[in-house]
């Protein structure tokens, strides 16, 4: 018995407002947490003064960014330059539609859930490219093009590893994938463990994090695609990066670690624990490894990850058919 339309719409509206609130708080929390994790790895303390152990530091930074002067670069393509932050933030927020936060809490469980997420996050590339082009700065353009090349190359192993999960679960819907893990998390199966590793590496490249952060690197010549953005526009790129990080970690938690499943405690708690656990893993990798060079990164994606992912897919398919 399907709920009447008004009830569905009402639940969607409530769920999406909760999620929008969650996104804003989560981005601020992630920025603070990244600084604390990096500080403890480096034997330091991180922010300590504003709030308890610096927890209000993100709010102070946001206020500071709001007060910054809005500089438009001369000769920039105004429309494209202005639109670029939107093209980066909006797809990230839209991807939250099908992420299952708890047993009964999902904005709308599309039956093509995972496909929707991967396709929507690909639109971010457009935003990065627009930022690079619209800045009228040859280094930003270089940075934008490199970033676009990187993201597009690493989508192939990403999708190949996700396909293995879909084959195992038999459905594209996110809640369906979680339900298929009732008898054991997917990561415990060997072919899916390899898929998890490939997924993790590719998603780190998707979000432009070390060791794949050439587009944002400071010690290279170009300072990246978001050089010419100040104030709130820069904050938008920043927020989009951390939101993307949360999305890929949440997807990893759902596909490989069983989503909101867990004993005793409410399911939303387990989901957040697993997502933030994978985010911690990503931060741990960031503060340990040096950066990979551009040509080595592309070589790694096409000559190593993609063949391994294809091989993994082939072998899992063969085992499934037997």
């Amino acid at each position: 018995m399907i709920d009447p339309l008004s009830v569905q719409v009402r639940s969607m509206v409530i769920n999406s407002s909760v999620i929008l609130g969650f996104i804003s708080i989560s981005a601020m929390f992630l920025i603070w947490w990244e600084r604390k994790v990096s500080a403890h790895i480096q034997n330091r303390l991180g922010p300590m003064i504003v709030g308890w152990h610096g927890s209000l530091q993100s709010i102070a930074d946001t206020v500071k960014l709001l007060l910054k002067e809005n500089i438009v670069p001369a000769g920039a393509d105004k429309m494209i330059w202005w639109l670029a932050p939107f093209f980066v933030v909006v797809p990230s927020v839209m991807a939250f539609v099908t992420i299952p936060f708890a047993r009964n809490f999902v904005v709308h469980d599309l039956n093509v859930g995972i496909l929707f997420i991967t396709s929507i996050t690909s639109v971010c590339v457009l935003g990065i490219f627009m930022a690079g082009w619209g800045s009228n700065n040859k280094y930003s353009l270089l940075g934008g093009m490199r970033s676009a090349a990187q993201i597009i190359s690493y989508e192939v192993p990403l999708l190949l590893s996700v396909v293995v999960v879909i084959m195992e679960a038999g459905t594209l819907s996110m809640q369906g994938i979680i339900q298929a893990q009732e008898h054991g998390w997917f990561i415990l199966k060997p072919n899916l463990a390899i898929a998890f590793v490939i997924y993790f590496i590719s998603s780190t490249a998707e979000v432009n994090r070390v060791p794949f952060d050439i587009p944002e690197a400071e010690s290279e010549l170009g300072a990246g695609y978001h050089t010419e953005y100040t104030g709130m526009k820069f904050a938008m790129f920043f927020v989009a990066e951390y939101t993307n990080l949360f999305i890929v970690s949440a997807v990893a938690a759902t596909l490989f670690l069983g989503g909101w499943q867990g004993p005793f405690l409410p399911s939303v708690f387990w989901f957040l624990l697993k997502s933030y656990g994978i985010i911690f893993l990503s931060m741990w990798v960031r503060w340990t490894l040096p950066r990979v060079r551009m040509d080595q990164m592309m070589g790694f994606a096409w000559k190593f990850l993609t063949p391994v992912a294809l091989l993994n897919l082939l072998i899992s398919g063969w085992f499934m058919l037997r």
Binding site: I41, Q42, L45, V285, T288
Partner: peptide
């Protein structure tokens, strides 16, 4: 080579996580 490369990355990460739990040396 690929296997040894992955292992070296994990060894490096073990160093970092050991320092995560070490006391900090900051004077506030």
């Amino acid at each position: 080579n690929a296997y040894l490369g992955m292992i070296s990355l994990f060894i490096g990460m073990r160093v970092t996580i050991k320092n995560y739990f070490a006391p900090s040396v900051t004077l506030e």
